[in-house]
Design a protein around this nucleic acid. Sequence first.
DNA 1: GTGGACCTTCCCATCATGGGAAGGTCAAGG
DNA 2: CCTTGACCTTCCCATGATGGGAAGGTCCAC
Lengths: 161, 161
Amino acid sequence: MSGTVTIGEAARRTGVSAKMIRWYEETGLLPPAPRSEAGYRHYGPADLHALRFIRRARDLGFGVEAIGELLALWHDRARPSAAVKALALAQVGELRQRIAELEGMARSLEHLARTCCGDGRPDCPILDDLAAEAAPPPARRRRRLADETGRIARDIARKAR
Amino acid sequence: MSGTVTIGEAARRTGVSAKMIRWYEETGLLPPAPRSEAGYRHYGPADLHALRFIRRARDLGFGVEAIGELLALWHDRARPSAAVKALALAQVGELRQRIAELEGMARSLEHLARTCCGDGRPDCPILDDLAAEAAPPPARRRRRLADETGRIARDIARKAR
DNA sequence: GTGGACCTTCCCATCATGGGAAGGTCAAGG
DNA sequence: CCTTGACCTTCCCATGATGGGAAGGTCCAC
């Protein structure tokens, strides 16, 4: 087992917690690690490399599903870069959408806060706004832009073969 | 029971789903609704008003805890508007922080995508970046800016009494 | 009196992450 | 050899806000 490390050491060296490493294995993002006789997982240099890859992707906001696709493309030496680019741009789109939502909230709140004098008196335009009778709203809808784009990325990879 | 509506009607009129109304009651954000003999919850105009208040706050990105504080301030006719403003500004701060995080991710990804030609060839700067050996990173830390600011808002409310 | 729309509670899933318990393993030092 | 402490294992539970669905009771209009 020379050249391999335990899960704790792998966590320290990659910035992915031991809990998450086990979880990635459990959910199939990573293949099961080889075990010592006592049942301890052991990780070699290639495994550490994959863990750092995952961590970097995670820091860029990719979800596990997308990370799985990225890993597959990484291991596929014949992948078309267009497939990777499609995933990246889909992720950018999702990020931009979430940013736009948050930006809208922040702007509304900033506007409200600007109109509130913020002293000891009870009059408060912020609460007045929250309590305003609004038109019966059509509820909110969301999600799953990524599913579609993941399919597109897979199509690109398939067509290129 | 005239003037009161069932949970489904309340959901329709306020844009808060029946599931969430029950959940708000269960977690103490709302007081238990009065029941009919058969156990059906019934909601009057004031309840609908509160539900719309919650929905509006939710749409501005407030968490349940903050919404609870806002509701308390709403019902406290002697509240200082400064307390409300503090909560609103804390929420703006949280939103701005999350926006900054997402913005950083989006910018990095956009840069990577720009350097990737995105054709049928396998060379891909995006994957190269993800796979790059990075300095052993100090892991991520987050959260709890709101706890602190919630305390500040409560301090303001207390001092004003 | 029946059908269908509605209500109730209870359980489960999400997504990525952490906390903690109970128990086994390993290495170093006495 | 034995203890100690650091480490590993699995298993369960929690998060926040939301939805899905099952099993069963209720209401109302026809």
